[in-house]
């Protein structure tokens, strides 16, 4: 074996290396890459699921997007949803992580319960909240409010409140995840740096904004992007709690894709929407890579 030439060792390595990655890569090509190529192709077709017809229409579907008020609405709603979910999630999870991170009594317990919804299925979580948020005084949430003299709205059936409701239930569902990640990052903060800052007299907001936040910045960036992409993908919460209503006020992109493809049977047009969604996610991901390089200065 030792006598084998360098070249044949290389060849051997190449064969073994590829042998090991082939299952994953082959599956990736079949189940990720190929469908991705197809979605671009379908996006340029008029393809009816029910009628089984398809014909090439070039960029017509993309042209149609911006004259389709429902698409524009779904795009705007997706942005509203993200704009609601992301800051709420980040602020609360960072606060909780910093507050609970110090190893106080009960931390483990709180971490445990905040994490319960994370492992629960989105379907189960949505089912329970649909009941809890019933209008009138029928739902427990409104019943509690009525006990303190507040007349709660018909949460899932009033414009505005419906969006607020899905945002809050979604934040609660995923909060635990980010709390955990931030807790990990908080624990990894270099104690000496913070100690030094404390000795220099930094505390409270100053200590947080000048010292801790910069130290946590890489994690914050990463969590932000992951949360944004996650919020773009919301489906079960919407389908089961509001069905996109009322007035389409919770119709988000993914649900609109589902609607167009499987309710109105326009799989071609739906694919064009999927391409737009892909574009958004791609830009966000690239954004994360670039920004990670920029903030990596802080990485310790």
């Amino acid at each position: 074996m030792k006598k084998l030439s360098l070249q044949s060792t290389h060849r051997r390595e190449a064969i073994i290396g590829w042998a090991f990655v082939t299952p994953q890569m082959a599956g990736f090509i079949i189940f990720v890459l190929l469908p991705l190529v197809s979605v671009f192709m379908y996006g340029m077709q008029e393809k009816n699921l029910l009628f089984g017809t398809s014909s090439f229409v070039g960029l017509d579907n993309f042209g149609r997007l911006f004259s389709d008020p429902l698409f524009v609405k779904s795009l705007v709603n997706t942005l509203i949803f993200s704009a609601g979910v992301v800051p709420l999630n980040l602020i609360f999870s960072l606060m909780l992580a910093l507050y609970l991170g110090g190893g106080k009594t009960g931390t483990r317990f709180v971490r445990g319960i905040i994490f319960l919804p994370v492992v629960t299925s989105g379907v189960a979580w949505a089912i329970v909240w649909r009941y809890l948020l019933q209008g009138g005084t029928a739902g427990p949430v409104n019943w509690f409010l009525s006990q303190v003299g507040i007349e709660g709205p018909n949460w899932l059936f009033e414009k505005g409140w419906a969006m607020a409701s899905v945002i809050v239930t979604r934040v609660m569902k995923n909060l635990g995840m980010n709390v955990l990640i931030f807790m990990g990052a908080v624990l990894n903060m270099p104690g000496d740096v913070i100690e030094a800052a404390r000795i220099d007299g930094a505390k409270g907001w100053n200590l947080f904004s000048k010292i801790k936040l910069p130290l946590l910045m890489p994690t914050v960036m990463m969590v932000t992007i992951v949360t944004v992409i996650g919020s773009m993908r919301v489906f079960d919460t919407i389908k089961l709690m509001t069905d996109g209503g009322p007035e389409g006020s919770t119709m988000v992109m993914v649900y609109y894709i589902y609607h167009q493809a499987f309710r109105m049977f326009e799989t071609g047009y739906a694919s064009a929407i999927a391409v737009v969604l892909f574009g958004i996610v791609l830009v966000l991901t690239l954004g994360q890579w670039v920004s990670r390089k920029r903030v990596s200065y802080y990485e310790v």
Binding site: P35, L36, S38, A261, S271, L277
Partner: peptide, 8 residues
């Protein structure tokens, strides 16, 4: 996201 490729 699987949602992008679900139709294909």
């Amino acid at each position: 996201p699987i949602e992008v490729t679900i139709i294909p």
